[in-house]
């Protein structure tokens, strides 16, 4: 490794159980302070609604899906989750900087080209984005935060995300192993 890791010393990553306790503590703090857990896809939805609103304001107001986020002149970017995701960006960057992991890189299996990896990432992202709206939240907001409050929705979403990924893993193995 070219750079020194200022967080864990000689190990590349933090012990996963320690990192999990750290993440769980942040999640608990979020509940204690705000009454809600963490999220990610909600902030992306805000960005999409804002963009659609700039392009076609009347259409956005009339839409059953977008309309509720902009009623009464509300700005969808003025949301708790948008600021939280900006924090994720900075927090991830700080961690990467301290651990010596800041590099432009397309990570892919030697079986596939970088170009194919990018195409698959776009398709996977589109599926995840679509599914996160259908399921009212992603791994952070629905599965992790949902499970922490013991909500049935959280457990069901978690099992359906991971169950499906396991079920289809065999068919996509060439892309990863």
């Amino acid at each position: 490794m070219a750079h020194h890791n200022y967080v864990t010393g000689t190990k590349k990553y933090m012990n996963p159980y320690v990192a999990g306790i750290m993440l769980g503590t942040v999640l608990l703090l979020s509940f204690y302070l705000t009454g809600r857990g963490l999220g990610a896809s909600g902030a992306m939805k805000s960005a999409v609604v804002s963009t659609v609103n700039v392009v076609a304001p009347e259409y956005t107001q009339g839409s059953d899906f977008y309309g509720k986020y902009i009623t009464g002149g509300k700005n969808p970017m003025n949301s708790w989750l948008v600021f939280q995701v900006l924090g994720v960006l900075v927090g991830g960057f700080l961690s990467g900087a301290l651990a010596g992991r800041l590099t432009w890189k397309t990570e892919h299996s030697p079986n596939i080209t970088a170009r194919k990896r990018i195409v698959l990432a776009i398709i996977g992202g589109a599926l995840f984005g679509f599914g996160s709206q259908f399921g009212r939240g992603c791994t952070s907001g629905a599965a992790l935060s949902g499970m922490a409050t013991l909500s049935l929705a959280g457990f069901v979403t978690m099992m359906s995300i991971f169950g499906t990924a396991f079920l289809f893993a065999y068919f996509f193995r060439k892309n990863w192993i």
Binding site: G124, F128, I161, T164, F172
Partner: peptide, 16 residues
């Protein structure tokens, strides 16, 4: 939603 997200996970390698 979970099924579609699971598919997105194994195809794309990340979650949001």
């Amino acid at each position: 939603g979970g099924v579609i997200m699971g598919l997105g996970f194994i195809v794309g390698g990340f979650c949001p």
